[in-house]
Design a protein around this nucleic acid. Structure first.
Length: 441
DNA sequence: TTAGCCTTGATT
DNA sequence: AATCAAGGCTAA
């Protein structure tokens, strides 16, 4: 801090004062504020008086959507994302200034949000990796010499890694010679052969990840945005504990109407969808309804509770079993959700791309120009592959990518089984839209 | 954990 | 070229 003040042009104008104010923060701060006031009256320094809106310290500019000092910026970055368990020791309205700001993290963070700092401007895991990858890529471009030096050292696998893993996988201590992928990710019984990705075990070397092209990124974020605003929309606020509704299949089908409406608005926003002729638009839409419902159910499936959590309530799988009477069908459905969710987690990007792949299904009934549909589907398949390579490394993506595609293929069989169940519904009790869309009549 | 300083890609 | 606003690193 003292350093900054000495080099600050404002201070150089008051050289003799600087000497007398050599001590730490508290009184120094007062001095500074006083001087600021004076300087503001001076001619040229008007815009240079940015103060942190959180604590009043000197600010350099915007951080996460608000003018803050460096320390509050770092504070926000460190704390905004973790779910706030700590609370204020007092009344929740502690004064926050440059001296007191460290006393109550709760109130400091609260103030951060109050003055408009936005936590979604903090880069997430994926974005951070993309950023680092870009830096590295540029370095390689601009200097192949340094890269050489760095590349010759990094095999870190000596003492640290086995130690860390011995906690969770004690029995594998002898396998340190095997490639990382074979031990770092535990086998899961729910995903026969494919192991869920554990973020912590992913390599840190950016070389192993794909850097998404700006075009890929643009296409993907647009798609995800559309998906999120329609099909992916999740309401999480209410906790419905009473397992009401859903007495029978009719209710379930009618409830799906909401999802279908969302599918329609999703599709309407897709530029690629407009490339299809009218007839194919309808055919593609109809053909993917059940697939969409099933795919979407993965989002709502809660593994621990063995239930689907929807905006309208919790649906334990047991109810579905009795409702349909097809126990094995629901076992396979549940299993499907479990295995796909283990890999996809709650990644909206992946869900959005899978949804696109499901829509542009060249195999769909009554599609006329199948190759057009297939071309569009290819685009999203490749995009999905690239994305996986960018978040999981090329090596892991090689395994997960076919796995996920396989899951998409499995949708067909699964939805056909469900379709047979739908035959037993009573058309009189089904909403017109669903009748129309499911060809029930 | 804090907070200052540094490196960077993007934007102007 | 200068500025902005992210993340990283690291004494204290």
């Amino acid at each position: 801090m003292a350093d900054m003040e000495e080099t600050d042009p404002e201070w150089s104008e008051f050289g003799h004062d600087v000497q007398s104010v050599q001590q730490p923060s508290s009184s120094c701060e007062d001095e500074r504020v006083r001087k600021k006031g004076r300087l503001k009256d001076d001619k040229n320094m008007l815009k240079d008086d940015k103060l942190c809106r959180v604590c009043g310290d000197k600010a350099l500019g915007y951080n996460f959507n608000a003018i803050t000092c460096e320390s509050c910026k770092a504070f926000f970055r460190r704390n905004a994302l973790k779910d706030q368990k700590t609370s204020c020791l007092f009344d929740g309205n502690c004064p926050i200034d440059v001296r007191t700001r460290r006393f109550c993290p709760h109130c400091r963070l609260k103030r951060c949000f109050d003055i408009g700092m936005k936590k979604d401007m903090i880069l997430d895991e994926t974005e951070r990796r993309a950023r680092m990858a870009k830096v590295l890529q540029n370095r390689q471009k601009r200097g192949s010499k340094q890269v050489f030096d760095i590349k010759s050292e990094p095999l870190e696998i000596d003492t640290e890694m086995p130690d860390q893993s011995s906690e969770s996988f004690p029995s594998l201590s002898s396998s340190s010679l095997q490639p990382i992928s074979s031990w770092a990710i535990p086998l899961s019984p729910t995903t026969k052969g494919i192991k869920p990705v554990e973020d912590l075990t992913l390599p840190t070397d950016p070389d192993l990840y794909r850097t998404l092209s700006t075009e890929d990124q643009a296409v993907m974020s647009e798609l995800t945005e559309i998906y999120q605003s329609t099909l992916g929309e999740v309401i999480t606020d209410k906790k419905v504990t009473d397992e009401n509704g859903y007495e029978n299949v009719n209710d379930l089908v009618n409830n799906s109407e909401i999802a279908v409406r969302r599918l329609i608005s999703f599709v309407k926003k897709l530029n690629d969808f407009r490339l299809l002729c009218q007839a194919d638009q309808i055919a593609a839409l109809k053909a993917c309804i059940l697939n969409t419902l099933l795919l979407r159910s993965v989002t709502f499936y809660h593994v621990e509770k063995d239930a689907w959590i929807t905006p309208t309530g919790v649906i334990p799988t047991s109810i579905l079993k009795s409702a349909t009477g097809f126990i094995e069908l629901h076992d396979s459905h549940t299993k499907y959700c479990r295995s796909l969710k283990a890999v996809v987690k709650d990644d909206l990007h992946i869900m959005a791309m899978l949804q696109a792949i499901v829509i542009f299904n060249p195999d769909g009934q009554n599609i006329i120009s199948r190759s057009t549909v297939s071309d569009i589907q290819d685009k999203y398949i490749i995009l999905l592959k690239h994305y996986m390579e960018s978040i999981w490394t090329f090596e892991y993506a090689r395994d997960y990518y076919p796995f996920v595609l396989q899951k998409i293929a499995e949708l067909k069989g699964l939805s056909e089984e469900h379709a047979s169940v739908l035959l037993q519904v009573n058309p009189n009790k089904i909403e017109p839209l669903m009748l129309e869309v499911l060809n029930l009549k």
